[in-house]
Amino acid sequence: MKKLFFTLLLLSSVLLSAQTKNDIDFASRLKSTFSQSTDCVNDFEKILKPEELKALNTTLNNFEKKYLYKIVIITTPSIEPFQSFEEFATDLDQFLSKDPRLDPTLLIVVSKTLRQIQLLSVDFIKYKLNTEDTQNIISTYSIPELKKGNYYKALEQASNELIKKLQ
């Protein structure tokens, strides 16, 4: 499945040391991580409170049931063994696409530690939500809140705006 992607840097790029990519280790770690979870929000960086996580999951699950578009949000403290955030998000999206329970229509990957956000979407929603729309939503609703450190509000507002566009 072809994916459309773009990257927004939140504040500044973090220089990453050269790392070697080991696809087998990454795939096995992802498989063990996601084999038990089909939630829309996976907070591996632990930046959301339990009630925030529950509220965001409820919103996204209800939207998926009604419109059949799955929005998945993943927070991560590290992109190891990858060299770039974009590469990490793209490979993560490809991995999730292999399982119908996890396959996202929109994938939002956020890292507080790395100060980056990436949004990937499938091509078939382009007529409802193009690159300019997604970039505008992230820039207008997420980035100001992320700069303030309010990750829940940033993700909630972006999700609500994406939902409005996809309805």
Rank of each mutant, 00 (worst) to 15 (best):
E161H: 10
T7Y: 15
D25M: 13
I71F: 01
T38C: 08
S32Q: 13
N136W: 11
E45V: 00
Y69V: 00
N130M: 04
I125C: 03
S142Q: 03
D93K: 12
D25E: 14
F95Q: 04
A55Q: 12
T140V: 08
F34G: 05
K164S: 08
L68D: 13
D23F: 13
K153P: 02
L162F: 15
V72I: 10
L56C: 05
V72K: 12
D123E: 14
A55D: 14
I71H: 01
L102I: 05
V109T: 12
E161R: 13
Q167S: 10
L11P: 00
E161Y: 08
Q116A: 14
I108Q: 03
A89L: 01
L16R: 13
N136Y: 15
L68F: 14
K164L: 09
E145A: 10
S78M: 07
K2Y: 10
T140S: 11
T90M: 11
C40A: 11
L96N: 01
I137R: 04
T7G: 09
P81R: 06
T75W: 01
L92E: 01
S97L: 09
K46C: 05
F5L: 13
Q19T: 11
E51N: 11
Y69W: 04
K21R: 12
K164I: 07
K126H: 13
R101M: 08
K112Y: 02
F95K: 03
Y127S: 15
K54F: 13
Q135H: 11
N130P: 06
F5A: 11
E86V: 05
I74G: 02
V41T: 04
V110D: 07
L114G: 05
G149M: 04
N160L: 15
Q118L: 05
F82E: 01
L114N: 07
Q135K: 15
S35C: 08
D103P: 01
S121L: 06
Y152G: 02
L96K: 00
E45L: 00
N160C: 07
P100E: 11
Q157D: 15
L60V: 03
K49R: 10
V14D: 09
R101C: 03
V72N: 04
Q116I: 09
E145R: 10
T90V: 11
T20Y: 09
D43Q: 00
T20F: 10
T131Q: 14
L102A: 09
L92V: 01
K66N: 08
S12T: 13
R115L: 12
K148N: 11
V14W: 07
R101L: 12
L30C: 12
D25A: 13
K49W: 03
L60T: 02
A158D: 02
L48S: 03
N150D: 14
L102N: 09
L68Q: 15
P77E: 06
L10H: 07
D43T: 00
R29Q: 08
D93L: 09
Q36V: 08
R101K: 13
L11Q: 14
I79Q: 03
N42Y: 05
K147S: 07
T59I: 14
N42D: 08
K3I: 15
D123L: 09
K165H: 10
N62E: 15
V72G: 00
